[in-house]
Write a protein that binds this DNA or RNA. Structure first.
Lengths: 104, 104
DNA sequence: CGGATGTGCAACTCTAAGGTTGCATTAAGC
DNA sequence: GCTTAATGCAACCTTAGAGTTGCACATCCG
């Protein structure tokens, strides 16, 4: 269940990728366009877009000779749900332990 | 807003740390105890517990001469909520763009 | 057609992170 | 008090990844 989850978190665990996602949040853009706004090279951005695409957080769209990228918001939401599910599991266990500890 | 979020994701973006969290899910345990169950050294586990504690995902509890660690489920849930909020933002923007694109 | 503009691929550097071994230290327990 | 088990700290190795430069290829446009 979590084997597909971990790479998503690894992808989200990088400051630069968040700024890319944030920039894409204001409108789809190509790697070159993003390179104009961010303090890194186009190739670095291309790599980041690669890993983001790999985990389904971003989607490429060919527009003429350029490749624009779009944020896949639903993937973010899905990840949040799965994370919440795990958290709920642990909370339930903690509650159960608490009951036991209180002598119930 | 996201500056405290990224390290949490970085912490969750490691397979070993998930197995530690998973093991802790079945009951609080010390680094030495975990070393018995996982295919890594106690010191490696200690480091991982350090970064997990750093981002608030885990909490140390002294029991005699040993230090047991407990999962903080609420932090997981909080992270999930924040992530969901971001996803919702992007979804809303995408919906707005779709409306515009459809000539509304 | 020819020059911009945009992508893709490859090699290279450098640092941080995961992991190890080794030793010092602290605290139970007999 | 002395042994034993647990933790803490430090140095070290090794690899993955973030970033760069450089060049080749494709594609739009005047």
């Amino acid at each position: 269940m979590t084997e597909t989850l971990v790479p998503v978190f690894a992808a989200l665990g990088d400051e630069t990728r968040w700024s890319i996602l944030s920039a894409l949040g204001e409108g789809d853009a190509s790697a070159s366009a993003l390179a104009g706004r961010l303090p890194v090279t186009r190739q670095a951005i291309a790599k980041h877009l690669g890993v983001l695409q790999e985990v389904g957080l971003v989607e490429p769209v060919r527009v003429g000779r350029e490749v624009r990228y779009r944020v896949v918001g639903s993937e973010l939401a899905a990840t949040a749900r799965r994370l919440d599910a795990v958290g709920a599991l642990w909370d339930r266990r903690l509650a159960a332990i608490k009951e036991i500890a209180e002598g119930l």
